[in-house]
Write a protein that binds this DNA or RNA. Structure first.
Lengths: 235, 235
DNA sequence: ACCTGAACACCGTTCAAGT
DNA sequence: ACCTGAACACCGTTCAAGT
């Protein structure tokens, strides 16, 4: 097995794909240069021929997954076009749960991310947004444009961990927690009841994501229709 | 100097405050058990008498800073009350730039965080929100309730880093990047022009935060007035 | 010139030895 | 019983030695 791996020559692409696969399978915490090298059947130092360091490896991995986001559709209005792309980005993040933390920890945009953001702005401008409003809209959407859900606590990011209480799965609210935080218990009970189709884990993440997304898109559309400008700024 | 530090007995509170101060000063990356111990003038192992491990240390630090968020005001309506608390949370995060990453990496709510969230839900319920709508609102607000800005790229999180391009400071868009991503260059130029008071770093973060916050609060208020329920759900 | 093993400077945490 | 130094099992990366 290590034999066949040795036969294929090591390339930057092979390293990046193996790194993505390893992060998908075992989480970003388990992704180390030494670990990745072992997966590829090479000595750790061999990786440094193709990537300068671990940060550059992460940048490459980000470019790989951002490249999986659907291209923009030209046959709909701006709202539907942006909406579908953001939902596509979200599907990508579901396939690669480590990506949000990796992207955030890098705090610099890679070329692939910049290209994606540029094309979203292009859709807005074509839809009649002023540069001014488009700018504020990009800020307001924030990382949601990349499919981030900004959940209060995201259990999918890390596996098992010693902790205090899980908010993510309100179904399993322990009684003593429910007693101390009655309002949280109340709304978490509402979540379990109003959606019979969701079994087990409580909240319907897809619905919550679209709820927030549409809240923003509707508000943004209203501003666009009103011809909003920065001069509306009162404070 | 180490003498005077040795005199004061080591307590959990002293450790937590020193850890917060160290993270404030040098960033979360520089916060190690060994480093913190040296700051306190004790041997690393001495810390483990008061905190079980590093995760528990982080939980304690989170409780310290979440405790700095203003208590709810009772003399206004729900919208103003929630708005002011979220802006207070944001001020806290500005004092402690490491906190967002720390809170996200923990992915479990500490008792202090749960208490804060519970009181926000209480304000919503008192303001006439159904448990159903309050639940979706909490999801839609996400970490913004804790003051998170969900910027696309947050330069304040990490210090200098080798990277590709900074999106955070659009004023300094290098020419070759501007040529490749014309729509991004266009809206970043708009940002610099429409606000003469912002010098240097380009965007007015406080304005962008309030813009997005008010967009959400206004949309939420509209749903509340309309008596929104989950049955509006079409898909 | 290329490859790579050993080494360096860290890390969180365990554990046993010293008091 | 308490405290703590040494040690363990990692990490990213440097560097010099071997081919």
């Amino acid at each position: 097995m290590a034999d066949t791996l040795h036969r294929t020559p090591l390339t930057r692409d092979r390293i990046l794909l193996a790194a993505v696969a390893l992060a998908d399978a075992t989480g970003i915490q388990s992704l180390s240069m030494r670990n990745l090298a072992q997966d590829l059947g090479v000595v750790p130092m061999a990786l440094y021929k193709h990537v300068a360091n671990k940060d550059e490896l992460l940048d490459g991995m980000i470019d790989v997954v951002v490249g999986e986001i659907d291209p923009p559709r030209q046959d709909t209005d701006w709202k539907q076009s942006v909406r579908l792309r953001i939902l596509s980005a979200r599907q990508m993040l579901i396939r690669h749960p480590w990506a949000p933390l990796a992207i955030e920890s890098r705090n610099m945009a890679t070329m692939a991310v910049l290209a994606y953001l540029d094309s979203v702005v292009a859709t807005l401008r074509a839809g009649g947004f002023s540069t001014d409003l488009a700018h504020h809209v990009m800020h307001a959407m924030g990382s949601r444009i990349l499919g981030f859900s900004q959940e209060l606590f995201d259990a999918s990011r890390r596996a098992g961990q010693t902790g205090v209480a899980e908010v993510d799965a309100p179904t399993g609210f322990p009684p003593e927690i429910a007693a101390r935080f009655p309002h949280l218990a109340e709304i978490s009970a509402a979540a379990s009841h109003d959606d019979a189709s969701t079994v087990g884990s409580g909240c319907d993440d897809q619905f919550e994501f679209e709820f927030a997304l549409d809240l923003l898109l509707d508000g943004i559309d209203r501003l666009r229709q009103q011809g909003w400008t920065s001069s509306h700024r009162v404070r």
